[in-house]
Design a protein around this nucleic acid. Structure first.
Lengths: 206, 206
DNA sequence: CAATTGGCATACGAGGCGTATGTCGATAGG
DNA sequence: CCTATCGACATACGCCTCGTATGCCAATTG
């Protein structure tokens, strides 16, 4: 019976990830002492180095976990809508809302890029951006949006969402700031839509 | 004659900022040793702590310097165009191009937010975002764009530009990636436009 | 010309990180 | 059933970096 053994190991990994996630999320990556948060999990740095190589390795594992959760949430949101476009807009809104959560904002959106470099190069290949690109691909095939590179559009939108979220989160009056941001955001999104008026006007102008 | 004295002090400050800027830009904030780069300027950490308080203080000074340069460049670009909309589009393009520069990308866009927090709260109140918001305000008064909060729009656009730039910079084929990004970016920008589209905008979008 | 201020260097202590090494229990082969 | 090996994790050590306290020297000021 070699199950208990494997389970203990998995549990140790999980405890380290959880402790790291909490520490990174609350005090930030740079200020999180490995001695401290491994001890809070009843372990030492020895276990951390054994499983993750170094502090960066643990950060990667933490981010991969959060990224998977975000991706799952986005998929649920987009699948729930009546039509594809609405599903996509809901997905964007959900993305902004997730970016408002302190843990996600700090670990994935601030410390992550600073420590691990550009997110588009991460091993956990930004599941949630891929999810958005997928939705955009369907919309393009459907003819709802103009012909653009879906990954490019997804990245631009996620970038805009991210900044909007940070701006809102640190605002004096998050409520009204949020309204402003969402309105401007929707205006930008309409640029993607293949509606008669803008396109016709564009061609006539030529 | 108290000029030489003041000049020496200003020169020391400038040397520290320059050394820090170089170190932060090449190896990153976290990896930059204060002992090393102050020594490279012929000084010690004593001078740094005297003038800037701590490592973060120097980073702020470096970012303020870079931000001022960026703002000046953007103002020149937007003033050079034939009409306001064209000037704004040029400004956005220039912003993306600046975000491609490794020094700006690393110091202002990656390490800065991680160490100093959300850029919208910085003392150097993001001059360049303010510049973009100004341009947008004129466009709105002119009736060229729809009625949105200009600061919100400016932040969304800068966020999108920033991500686009990082994506391009780390791409295997920056040339074609750039084309994709710019096309998608222009599509989003058209969401801001009232119809009819000003002449010139269409060709650029295609 | 003396006193004081301020710019900057030196010296010291405290963590934090990474590595090398040790220990113990579990698994596997005979 | 017994033993050898391997892997999971802890402990111990040295290096580096940061922040502060202290000291020195030159320049300004009255």
């Amino acid at each position: 019976m070699h199950r208990p053994r494997k389970e203990m190991i998995a549990e140790t990994r999980a405890k380290l990830v959880a402790a790291g996630r909490h520490a990174f999320g609350s005090v930030g990556y740079a200020e999180a002492s490995m001695d401290d948060f491994t001890a809070s999990a009843g372990l030492t740095r020895g276990a951390l180095y054994h499983h993750f190589g170094d502090k960066k390795g643990l950060l990667q594992a933490v981010i991969a976990e959060i990224d998977a959760e975000m991706s799952a949430r986005l998929k649920i949101v987009s699948a729930r809508a009546d039509n594809l476009w609405q599903g996509f807009v809901d997905e964007c809104t959900a993305y902004i809302e997730m970016a408002l959560e302190p843990e996600i904002q700090r670990i994935v959106l601030r410390d992550g890029p600073a420590v691990l470099g550009d997110p588009s190069q991460w091993p956990s290949q930004n599941e949630c951006i891929h999810s958005m690109a997928e939705s955009l691909g369907k919309l393009r095939d459907e003819g709802t949006i103009v012909a653009v590179d879906v990954e490019a559009a997804a990245r631009l939108i996620s970038g805009a969402s991210l900044h909007a979220a940070q701006w809102i989160a640190n605002s004096d009056d998050p409520e009204t700031t949020s309204k402003k941001a969402v309105k401007a955001f929707n205006a930008l999104l309409e640029g993607l839509l293949r509606v008669p008026v803008p396109v016709g006007a564009c061609e006539r102008a030529r």
